[in-house]
Nucleic acid binder design. Sequence first.
RNA 1: GGCGUCGUACCCAAGUGGCUAAGGGAGCAGUCUGCAAAACUGCCAUGCAUCGGUUCGAAUCCGAUCGACGCCUCCA
Length: 469
Amino acid sequence: MEKLFLFNTLSRQKEEFIPIEDGKAGMYCCGPTVYNFAHIGNLRAYFFEDILKRVLLYNGFKVKHVMNITDVGHLVSDDDEGEDKMEKGANREGKTVWEIAEFYTEAFKSDIAMLNIIPPTIYCKATDFIKEQVEMVKCLDNKGYTYSTNDGVYFDTQKFPEYGKLALLDIEGLEEGKRIAFSDEKKHKTDFALWKFSPKNQKRQMEWESPWGTGFPGWHIECSAMSIKFLGRHFDIHCGGVDHIPIHHTNEIAQAEACTGEKFVNYWLHGEFLIEEKGKMSKSAGEFLRLKTLVDKGYSPLDYRYFLLMTHYRKKIKFSFENLDAARNGFQNLKNKLKEIKGALKDAKEGLSDEATKYRTKFIDSINDDLNIGEGLAILWDVLKSELDANDKINLANEFDRILGLDLAKIEAEQAGDIPSEVIELANKRKEAKAAKDFKLADELRQQIKDKGYELLDKKGGEFDIKPL
RNA sequence: GGCGUCGUACCCAAGUGGCUAAGGGAGCAGUCUGCAAAACUGCCAUGCAUCGGUUCGAAUCCGAUCGACGCCUCCA
């Protein structure tokens, strides 16, 4: 087996991936908060995790992939006035928070299916595992890592000396409350809520009993509690967006390691943002692009996947429709090329020639070097343009597609399809007109065919092809 | 204010000490064609933000400067 290298945020270096248990990989990926649709920037994160998973699978690992669905609303600040995103969403749409959660969970699953993202082995909803979260807070409470304020139970980060190692945080330099109001009862600016109390004069739609009072779990505890439940106290890979490094994942490490007393996760991987001209795409700014928006504009979801394949997951990618057009054109050319090659294939057979094996080795070297899919895609292009025979080309394309996920195997050889007889008749008339050198009539007939939604392509000897536009 | 990331052609982008700096898109020229499309062929960075330094050798390492972006309790 080839060696697989992954960039670990903990060490800020590429490290060889060595699983805790031979042949198996446990990975936990922070999932969506289901209060609204995912935008195409959110989806980039799940795409990156999909590539990671496909590379692990390709390398022969049995992958257990766990993803949470955050269906508990968290206050946008510690302030009593702060709004809960789930309840806000419910009010906006006149539904209960439970209905909101259900609806946007399904929308999320549909989005990732359209992008050919392999679903996680396990989806876990935060509200299904409140007991585990309360247990974990109890564990921290018993070990003396917590203190209570008027609004909740907090983690005392000063009791965890390694706090912030993941993010290389310079804690003194942090400006507390830079953007978000927070509780002034906190002992230290990095302390965070493990359990929040319901507002005194208000009943929340989602609240639970706990030894400390009625309320709901803090934002970070769900991921630690559920990842430990499904993957154990110490597991291989945890991933998410880069925005999770300084807070969410930093806090997860603190609470998990404080509770279990052992190392939590070996490899932390983070995907970069998709940005627009004005900066990162964000939901709170109001307008945002959904996958459906792209589909409505005539792009296929896989055009967007191809767009994402062009760059590395640790680099920001700039979204614009010009760039998406470039990806769509490139993808279309790739499919045309494959169609042509499939047309030239005489009898398909398994296996690769020695020459083809060299390309495969190069491809594996690329993807195993911290998921370098951009280079992998370039190797696919090299293959299609190479001197290899059609059989090798197709077998390699299908194999590479286990990582790329572009449905390349579904591309059929060029074929006539169902062309209406009237269109064929027009084309035959044009053939006659052309033979009679009546080019004016020929051009008119070409236009008529175009108006009916077909394109006429001349071939040698006066023959023609008709293709739907 | 602190911390972090990044700057490679018209656009996207790979390459992180040593062969002519991948690949895609767009463009241009040619072959073919009545025209067009497709296809094919060719062209497209003596240079990697700028200026210094280290080195036999730098896009790659170090420093400074300029610029862009992210995070500092909603966030992929």
